[in-house]
Design a protein around this nucleic acid. Sequence first.
DNA 1: TTCCGTGCAAACAATTTGCAATAGA
DNA 2: TCTATTGCAAATTGTTTGCACGGAA
Lengths: 150, 150
Amino acid sequence: MASDRVEQILASLRKNGGRASTPRRVIIETLLDARHHLTVEELTTDVQAGHPEIHLTTVYRTVEALEALGIVYHVHLGHGPAQWHLADDAHQHLVCQSCGRVVEAPDGAFAELRDRLEGDFGFLPDARHFAVVGWCAECRSRLPGGTPSR
Amino acid sequence: MASDRVEQILASLRKNGGRASTPRRVIIETLLDARHHLTVEELTTDVQAGHPEIHLTTVYRTVEALEALGIVYHVHLGHGPAQWHLADDAHQHLVCQSCGRVVEAPDGAFAELRDRLEGDFGFLPDARHFAVVGWCAECRSRLPGGTPSR
DNA sequence: TTCCGTGCAAACAATTTGCAATAGA
DNA sequence: TCTATTGCAAATTGTTTGCACGGAA
């Protein structure tokens, strides 16, 4: 049940010396309802549909607090604002630099790379915070050259 | 010889209907001299050491023009400003989200991943515009948990 | 002569910060 | 009570745009 999840997250905030305010409750509810790939601005719009008094700044501060607890995380997918996700919804992002489309790929495809980077460089890639830029199938057929355009 | 390279790049600009101005010449020289991983701001500082009249805006516009010709490219490595590179200096970036260090990895490590993404998703990753976020060897030993901190 | 590139100011987008008032624990 | 959190305004950072002038082709 979603509301259980909300209470659980609020409890986690409290346990870490934080407080369970109404804005935080509303923001968390909205976040759980929303699709993933949400910017702070989009999240704020959704939140303000029911609670216009909740300020953009508060949303920024709330997602930050939730990130510190490992409940959400954000990715910078090239240009534009950061995208926020629930932490249990971890996957890789393939971002098309021609059309901006984001394809999601399962972790599996990256297992070899992960082993390789860890073995060769001692570098542990973050499965969540990981975006691959390139060209999607559709743009590749439309633009045969495969040249970047931003 | 570096100055040959400068003339070659200016010729390329001219060939595409552009003009070879003094600011552009200076910016290109500075870019060729500099280490890679240069922000526009850093590049401007270097340029202005010899030519204080050259404006930040001009540097932005010049690197943009050079990118359109495929001579340089930029990457967003997580937070902060974009990093600019010469196109012939293509490599992958492993960005440590704890200390910000950028490790460079040869293309080789990514060959399998590239084949995999192309086969499974028709997605062609851009070898140049590609950053992997994670934790470097040193931070991993320092912070045993391996928890993000931004 | 044409029109591209420049400097400068100002706009912009995304995010962060300072601060007094408010409201959880 | 005590202090974390909020709303609001304002500051910051990185980048882009408008515009009149000057210089390359």
